[in-house]
C-alpha cells in the first residue's frame, strides 16, 4: 500500500463524512464546515491517487489550488447568506419550506 493510496483512502472517508454532515446536520455553520471537509476530501483523493512511484505530478496540485479558490468563494457566499438569514430571522437553521 503506497502513501498515495493511504491519502486517497483518507480523502474518500473525509468526503463521505462531509456529505453526511451537509445532508444531516441542521446547524448552518456546521453544515458549511462539513462542506469544507467534503472539499478537502476530494482534494486529497485528487493529489493522493495521482502520485505514482513517488514522482510528484504538478497538474493535480494546480487543480487543487483552483479548487481551494472555488471552495473559499463558496464558503464566503454561504457565510454571507447565513449572516443575512440570522439578521432576518434570528435563526441559524433553515426554516421549513412553506409550500403555499
Amino acid at each position: 500500500m503506497s502513501t498515495g493510496f493511504i491519502f486517497a483512502l483518507t480523502g474518500a472517508i473525509l468526503f463521505a463524512a462531509g456529505v453526511a454532515g451537509v445532508v444531516l446536520i441542521g446547524h448552518l455553520l456546521r453544515r458549511i464546515l462539513a462542506f469544507n471537509l467534503m472539499g478537502s476530501g476530494a482534494f486529497l483523493v485528487l493529489v493522493g491517487l495521482a502520485q505514482r512511484q513517488d514522482v510528484v505530478d504538478p497538474v493535480p496540485q494546480a487543480m487543487v489550488l483552483t479548487g481551494i479558490v472555488v471552495a473559499v468563494a463558496a464558503t464566503a457566499l454561504a457565510l454571507a447568506l447565513v449572516r443575512k438569514l440570522h439578521a432576518l430571522t434570528g435563526q441559524l437553521e433553515l426554516p421549513d419550506d412553506v409550500d403555499a
Partner: peptide
C-alpha cells in the same frame, strides 16, 4: 463536490 471526486478518480 461529487462531480469533482469523480474527476479526481478519473485523473487517478
Amino acid at each position: 463536490g461529487a462531480y469533482l471526486l469523480g474527476v479526481a478518480l478519473i485523473y487517478g
